[in-house]
Amino acid sequence: MAVVELQLSPLPSHVRTARLVVVAAARRAGLSDECVDELRLALGEACSRAVGLHAQHAPGTPVRVTVQDDPGLLSVTVTDSGPAAGPAPADLVDRFQGAEPDGSGPQDLVDPDVALAVVTGLVDDVSVDAGPAGTAVTMRWPLELGVAVGSTSVSR
């Protein structure tokens, strides 16, 4: 088992940092290119969601991101201290079209429910553990056994 753990102050610029670090860790663990693309987007959504919630509700508290690489399995968990995740919106299109009536408002922040819906739509194996202290979103991908750690070429 190998672990990479990050703590992010809730700033939008750090979402990119998290994407870069987690993608690098996943490539090293041997995750396939196709899954890396999925991870990049899903992790970005999960972190944007957490950072947005912290910016509103817990600005002094960092968001935690953990990458755990076990034989045959990569798990990435984003843990926030915001209000517990609610049920997924029934219609994402409505949700998008309802936002931003006049160009003002918190449009720069991600809609947390939409972000979570994208994560669950993208990744086959996701668990959402929501409680009063916050929400932990864990995404898992299979790793091909035998793809040696550290021997994969990291192109970028």
Binding site: A99, E100, Q107
Partner: peptide, 10 residues
């Protein structure tokens, strides 16, 4: 990401 989609919808 979905923030970008929101901007396009806007």
């Amino acid at each position: 990401d979905s923030t970008g989609l929101g901007v396009l919808v806007g």
